[in-house]
Amino acid sequence: MRLSELGQKEIVNLNNGERLGLISDADILFDKETGEIISLLASEKKISFKFLGVEGLEKEIPWDSIRKIGYDMIIVEL
């Protein structure tokens, strides 16, 4: 699967059903030596008061916590 195919898939936590955001909004951390993906950084847009100096937080999702990549969502177990 290509990264471009992941595009608008939603990241959902298996344990509590929490929506963690879209994969297209997440940053990807990878190992520079091996090129392996380490984790995703999904931004939590619940807190978004840029004018007060408070921006959204990021939740790190380890790559090995991904359980299933489906047609329109990615299921993770956190």
Results as ranks from 00 to 15, higher is better:
M1Y: 06
L3G: 10
E5S: 04
E5T: 00
L6I: 06
G7P: 06
Q8I: 15
K9G: 05
K9P: 06
E10T: 15
E10Q: 14
V12C: 04
V12Q: 03
N13V: 07
N13S: 13
N13A: 14
L14V: 10
N15V: 02
N15G: 09
N15M: 08
N16K: 01
N16P: 11
E18Q: 10
R19I: 15
R19A: 12
L22S: 04
L22T: 09
S24Q: 08
D25V: 00
D25Y: 01
D25A: 03
A26H: 00
A26F: 00
D27K: 08
I28V: 07
I28F: 04
L29A: 05
F30S: 13
E33S: 08
T34P: 02
T34F: 00
E36V: 09
E36L: 10
I37W: 00
I38K: 09
I38Q: 13
I38H: 05
S39C: 03
L41D: 02
A42S: 05
S43D: 11
E44R: 04
K45F: 10
K46C: 13
I47H: 08
I47A: 12
I47G: 08
S48G: 07
S48P: 09
F49I: 06
K50P: 10
K50G: 12
K50F: 03
F51S: 08
L52N: 03
L52E: 07
L52D: 05
G53D: 06
E55F: 07
E55W: 04
E55H: 12
L57C: 04
L57V: 09
E58V: 12
E58A: 11
K59M: 03
K59F: 04
E60F: 01
I61Y: 02
I61M: 05
W63K: 12
W63D: 13
W63S: 15
D64R: 14
D64S: 15
S65E: 13
S65D: 12
K68Y: 15
K68N: 14
K68C: 15
Y71I: 14
D72M: 14
D72K: 15
I74D: 03
I75P: 01
V76K: 14
E77M: 10
E77Y: 07
L78V: 06
L78T: 07
